[in-house]
């Protein structure tokens, strides 16, 4: 039964990814802009163009091109980047860790801000404190992440230059890392000087990505908590002698977390989408930044590779949300 569910899930994931592959393949070829024209110096003759088209397989029909590409992808060959002339898969895998670390730190910041604010707001429901949280949440939510990025640059980069404003790590540092997961590796190697430098670079883009998500978590979790607070088992916990904060943390939080968790999953995918612009803003060397370059250069294989990796991340996040949902709700686990 569980195996059956798991297989079904895998098939669904494969179908989703195939759909994404088809759409992105067609869209970037139908959209205006010719990669070959971008590569050749002015004055190249029609024979040169034809030769290059043949070299990259662009002279074949769309379905034929797609089959060739898909055949490669299935075997782990995502093709060669037209602009960078390197293997797409190794390019993407080289940049992916930077984006994953940024998105994870952003998610943690959002949880650290949003969780406690939701609990405080639920405890102080109906007071000026809750009203203040609502106003702040509304403001954080209505300002998009890249605009937060600009605000933060102004605050912590210009007015009070505390944090690094651009890049992923200070270029002067000697990096002993053997993977691209710099942050994780710096912690594992106990090189906390490097961790501090990485976090200093990461702080502003991560916070910019985190603030709208933090607002969503605060408002939704607070609302769910308030709905739970008048239920019989919460009242019973108060009669047992537990304080309001204890009641929220012990009885209400786990049940109220379910709707928030689903939304965090959805919002986290938006957050990863947001890395594209925010990474650009902070010259952070991640996948998003590379995606913009790839689009500017009409680097079809690279765009396809990046989009497919993004899609894979989204699918995996959804899977993780479903799994944690079952973990939090015992009725689903047994049913």
């Amino acid at each position: 039964m569980i195996l059956q569910k798991f297989l079904l899930r895998l098939i669904t994931m494969a179908v989703t990814l195939f759909g994404v592959a088809v759409v992105v393949f067609i869209v970037i070829r139908v959209a205006p802009g010719d990669p070959i024209a971008m590569m050749l110096p002015p004055g190249a003759g029609p024979e040169d163009i034809a030769r290059l088209r043949a070299l990259y397989g662009l002279d074949k029909s769309l379905p034929h091109q797609f089959l060739i590409w898909l055949g490669g992808v299935v075997q782990g060959d995502f093709g060669t980047s037209i602009s960078l002339r390197q293997d797409v898969l190794s390019l993407v895998l080289g940049r992916l860790p930077a984006t994953l670390e940024l998105a994870t730190v952003a998610l943690l910041i959002a949880l650290i801000i949003g969780g406690p604010l939701a609990v405080i707001g639920a405890r102080e429901r109906g007071t000026a404190v809750e009203a203040g949280i609502d106003v702040a949440g509304g403001a954080a939510l209505s300002i998009p992440d890249f605009l937060w990025g600009l605000v933060l640059i102004l605050l912590f980069g210009v007015l009070a230059p505390i944090f690094e404003i651009s890049g992923r790590v200070s270029p002067s540092l000697d990096l002993p890392f053997s993977t691209q997961f710099y942050l994780v590796e710096s912690i594992l190697r106990l090189r906390f000087d490097l961790t501090a430098d990485l976090l200093s670079h990461m702080f502003m883009p991560a916070l910019a990505l985190a603030l709208p998500l933090a607002a969503i978590i605060t408002l939704l979790l607070k609302q769910s908590l308030k709905e739970v607070m008048d239920l019989d088992y919460v009242v019973l916990a108060r009669v047992k002698g537990f304080s309001e904060t204890q009641v929220i943390l012990r009885e209400a939080l786990k049940n109220a977390a379910l709707p928030t968790l689903t939304l965090i999953g959805v919002q986290f995918t938006f957050l990863i989408g947001g890395t594209v612009i925010v990474e650009r803003l902070f010259s952070y060397e991640g996948l998003g930044n590379m995606a913009i370059d790839a689009v500017i250069n009409r680097d079809l294989p690279l765009i396809q590779g990046i989009v497919l990796v993004f899609a894979l991340i989204f699918v995996l996040i959804n899977l993780a949300v479903d799994l944690s949902y079952a973990l939090l709700n015992p009725r689903l686990r047994h049913g």
Partner: peptide
């Protein structure tokens, strides 16, 4: 007051279906 209530009193609620936390 909360501690005194917790130590000296107890409540048998009306509806046993809603008086237990479903996730504990």
């Amino acid at each position: 007051r909360r501690r005194l209530i917790g130590a000296r009193t107890a409540l048998i609620p009306q509806d046993p279906l809603t008086a237990l936390n479903p996730s504990r």
